[in-house]
Write a protein that binds this DNA or RNA. Structure first.
Lengths: 215, 215
DNA sequence: ATCTTCTTGTGCTACCTTTCACAAGCGAGA
DNA sequence: TCTCGCTTGTGAAAGGTAGCACAAGAAGAT
């Protein structure tokens, strides 16, 4: 499996998995690529091609066994284990994430939170006590944290990320509006609200301009 | 300008703009495609290609006039006006967004918030009072809201989005972990935390597996 | 006026992703 | 056992996106 799988494929796999979990809960036994495609906003061919990178999981003429495929996808995505996560920066976004119940349910345990604000340190939020940044390295090692969520103000984001990486973080989920510079072996995903909002503005403005032209 | 511009290009334009605003604040007058590329995590050729879709804004041998290009990008992205935004669902994420100062600073005014929870209705959060969903249509029209941010629980997301669209929303920013089905003229962007986290798990797991192979 | 240095704008190419289309395969029913 | 209906898995085509490489042009030095 030396094949390079693209980010967009991985995102779709996540969507398929999410759908399969629902179907499984509903005790449905089989699902076709077409059904999976419709509920995840893609095409049947795309579903089959995505899955084919990892093996043949379906039965011709029948479809895919829901529960089987679910397990396969969980294995592919590395979700057969639980992942320990730390939140860096306990502002609005950080504390919202701490209380986000969906994480636990989906295999992610937020086991640490850090902030530079003295007044926040020591407080407990959703069962996690906020620590000083000075304790970061030790805590990452002790609690075997592999994913850091950056939710600091933008000025502090790069430093926080560097520190998390030095402490052993293998992946970073970045909520700060900045492109982090990190070693290539660290996986990074951006969650940039204003970027997406601005993208929406472009589309709306463009649609408006196009409508005027055809008037 | 009938050209179809891809989402990835628009996202990069947003990044360029962000960088230009910083440079402008620092009173820097010109910037090269290379500098812009380095600070936004892309290549110089890509920067020039992106901009060339909309015109020639640079001077050969010199670079781009920072302030000029900033204005051009603001026009292209439709950011010369302010945008009125509503938040649907005032749970953890919703209320975090309501207090997010970056919005105002970037041209977005959150002018309404809705929730179905009676205990939340009437409360004031970051200067916005939480309304019942029954008031949604009227408020969207009165306050000329064009963007709806969906921050409801996943079960309520599709209905909330439908309602926003019927009330006149032209764009949806969706934080719920579900692929919304909406008419094609409505612009949608997804902000799906667990999707991105699972993507990171894939990358980490894969890197681990690759390392084992070469051992 | 000419040369040098620098950086843009862009045609061309290479790569990557998605879609198409169909043979292969499976199960049910006659 | 044979046929029919259905759905997968996949090679090939189409469609897009990103990178290369260089001519065109601008400013300053000689």
């Amino acid at each position: 499996m030396a094949r390079k799988i693209s980010d967009s494929t991985v995102r779709r796999l996540s969507r398929y998995l999410r759908r399969l979990r629902t179907l499984d809960r509903q005790e449905l036994k089989v699902v076709s690529s077409r059904e999976l495609a419709e509920s995840t906003g893609t095409t049947a061919a795309q579903v089959r091609k995505d899955l084919s990178h990892f093996g043949s999981f379906g039965k011709r003429g029948q479809g895919y066994a829901v529960s089987d495929l679910r397990v396969h996808l969980e294995e592919i995505l590395g979700l057969t284990r639980r992942w320990r996560v730390a939140v860096l920066g306990v502002g609005k976004i950080g504390s919202a994430l701490l209380g986000y119940g969906f994480f636990t349910q989906r295999g992610f345990d937020v086991v640490a939170a850090f902030d530079s604000d003295r007044s926040k340190i020591g407080r407990e939020l959703a069962g996690v006590s906020v620590q000083a940044l000075s304790e970061l390295e030790q805590t990452f090692v002790d609690r075997e944290i592999s994913i850091a969520i950056i939710a600091t103000p933008v000025e502090a984001a790069q430093k926080a990320a560097n520190r998390a990486v030095r402490a052993g973080a293998q992946a970073i989920l970045n909520f700060a509006p900045i492109k982090l510079r990190l070693p290539p072996e660290v996986a990074v995903r951006e969650m940039d609200v204003t970027l997406e909002l601005e993208g929406l503005c472009y589309l709306v403005t463009e649609a408006g301009a196009a409508a005027e032209e055809t008037e």
